[in-house]
Each structure stands twice: as structure tokens, then as C-alpha cells.
Amino acid sequence: MWYYEKKLQYPVKVRECNPRLAKFLVEQYGGADGELAAALRYLNQRYTIPDKVIGLLNDIGTEEFAHLEMIATMIYKLTKDATPEQLKAAGLGDHYVAHDSALFYNNASGVPFTTAYIQAKGDPIADLYEDIAAEEKARATYQWIIDLSDDPDLNDGLKYLREREIVHSLRFREAVEILKEERDRKKFF
């Protein structure tokens, strides 16, 4: 189970109403390399991975939900009280038709989230390599969003999230090293 702390992992601030930026940011909400995909991927892989790295997947998967919540707050603030005309001008007219101003799990192009984005192969090396790749792809996505954004307050939060991808990638690489180590050389068969 989880305990909930009613605060964000890192404060989120947005300088101006900017639905166009929200449209780009949603890639990290419901995109292939977004925070939802990351959280679901890691928490699901926990069950069949060797016990030495279950805790790592648990902790990082949980943190991804905290990131998801930050992204949601950013999108919400960027679009809050935007008029239908503003949303339409930002390329969110089709989003408005289906969802009003509600958030939804789709990517920046409006493609709905699918679990086909994630995998649980059962092979611990394959799973951890996927996790490392996912962190690097998410880091790159943050970089390209920061490049497109002219909101310094928002970018502060995005830079924090980008750094977390780097730390998580290293932790997954360490997990691979742990699984590679020679442990009990005794033959079991």
C-alpha cells in the first residue's frame, strides 16, 4: 500500500497561460516514454525480478507517480481557464471536443495511452535494460520540451525532473551490476 503526502515532490510554478506548451508537455503525461508508462512499467516488473532489486523498482516506480502528479499540475496550470478559442488556437480543439479542459492520458499528438508502450519480459536483464532506455528517452523528451518552452518557472521544474531521469538511469545500471555479480557459485542441480 501507499501513504500519500499532500504536496508535490518539487514545487510547480507556471508564469503564464500557455495551452500550446501544455500540448507539448502532455507527452510526459500519457506518451510512450512518459511518467505514467514509467510508473506502470516498474511497479509491474517488481513481481518477477530477483529480490535484490525489487525495492529499487518499488521506490522508483513510486517516485514516477510523484512526477506524474507534477506534470499534471503543470498541464492544469498552463490550461486553467483558457477559453475554447485559446485551446483551439493552441491545437487543442480536438482535445476540447473530447475532454473539455480535463486532463487525459494521451501523447502530444493526441494518441491515447496504451500498455503496448511498456513491457515485462520476465528476463531481469532485458527488463532492466528497457528501464534504462526508458529513463534516457524520458531525459531526451524533457530536453526537447525545455528547448520549446519559454517559461522559466516551468523550466525550473522540468530541469528537476530531467535530473531525476539521470539518477534513475544510474540506479538501474547499478541493479544490472548487482545481477551480474557472481554470488553463490554453488551448483544447485
Binding site: P50, D51, K52, E182, R183, F188
Partner: peptide, 12 residues
């Protein structure tokens, strides 16, 4: 030298 397979004992 390394081994091609590793073993672990899951919690039961």
C-alpha cells in the same frame, strides 16, 4: 571468469 547463469532463492 564469469558464469552464464545466476541463481536466486525467491521468497516463498
Amino acid at each position: 571468469m564469469f558464469t552464464q547463469f545466476k541463481y536466486w532463492k525467491p521468497y516463498i
